[in-house]
């Protein structure tokens, strides 16, 4: 079976789904089910009794076979991310943490230095660390060296829908990496998820593209199929590019030809 191995965890789905931006908890849960995902991200927030829908632990627990991957969104430093990871592990019981440190709310680009430091500490503490990073092959290798479970380079800015604009850098990261590479952020459509999988990504993480679709459930299902198609195509062997045309039909002995 072609499964995704992350630490001691084995997943049959290669689509990781974010739970933000959905119009309701019900819409989110329906999309999670339709996606077939087994790993979802959640964010740590202060409890507010007036916003009961904010509390997703109970509803997500009711869906069987879901593992939580809390993120450290909101953290601007390694220290804050480490603190958030500790609290999240207490709450979720999950060893996964998506390290996400973006100090600038205007572009949400990950801080590579703080991210590296947080990952070094958390991996040393036994977390399964999945950092959201710029598509930088050198940083990716450094994070592998400190014990990250995977690296998650951005396709483009969070929530931008600008697609896989970092494709060539992600290709290098995949080539050099000994740990799973997961494209996280920026994907807009299932075709982009499929392309990421054809490139050799081990999985993709999608949130906005599903959450803001007119029909999130249908879009979740479409992404699931695209991820599977891309993975199958990679295994099937994608034909090499040619600089010139190569005929698929005979060019000789046509009607009325001399030979």
């Amino acid at each position: 079976m072609d499964s995704l191995q992350l630490g001691s965890y084995t997943f049959s789905s290669r689509l990781i789904l974010g739970t933000g931006k959905f119009s309701s908890t019900r819409a989110m849960l329906d999309a999670v089910r339709a996606s077939g995902t087994e790993l979802v991200t959640v964010a740590l927030r202060r409890f507010n009794r007036d916003q009961a829908e904010d509390d997703l632990f109970g509803p997500l627990s009711e869906i069987g076979g879901i593992t939580l991957m809390p993120n450290t969104s909101g953290a601007a430093t390694a220290k804050e991310a480490i603190r958030a990871a500790h609290i999240s592990r207490e709450l979720s019981g999950s060893p996964f943490v998506k390290v996400e440190i973006h100090p600038n709310p205007h572009h949400l680009m990950p801080d590579p230095i703080e991210t590296w430091e947080a990952c070094r500490v958390l991996a040393g503490e036994g977390f399964l660390v999945m950092p959201y990073i710029p598509a930088d092959p050198v940083l990716a290798k450094r994070l592998e060296d400190v014990g990250c479970t995977s690296v998650m380079p951005l396709g483009s800015a969070i929530g931008s829908g600008q697609g896989l604009s970092t494709a060539e850098m992600v290709r290098i990261i995949i080539r050099e990496s000994n740990i799973p590479v997961i494209v996280d952020a920026g994907l807009r459509s299932p075709s982009e998820a499929c392309a990421a999988m054809e490139m050799g990504c081990s999985a993709v993480l999608v949130n906005s593209a599903v959450a803001v679709a007119n029909d999130p459930t249908a879009m979740a299902s479409a992404f699931a199929e695209a991820v599977q198609a891309g993975r199958r195509a990679l295994h099937a062997g994608i034909m090499p590019r040619s600089g010139s045309a190569v005929a698929t039909s005979p060019l000789t002995s046509f009607l009325g030809s001399a030979s």
Binding site: G18, T19, G20, K21, F22, M28, T41, V42, A43, L44, R45, R46, F47, D54, D55, L56, F57, L60, L68, P70, N71, S73, I87, S88, L91, S92, I158, G159, A185, L205, N207, S208
Partner: peptide
């Protein structure tokens, strides 16, 4: 004192 829960996030 902080009381924290899981909310939606990507």
């Amino acid at each position: 004192v902080d009381l924290l829960v899981f909310a939606g996030g990507g």
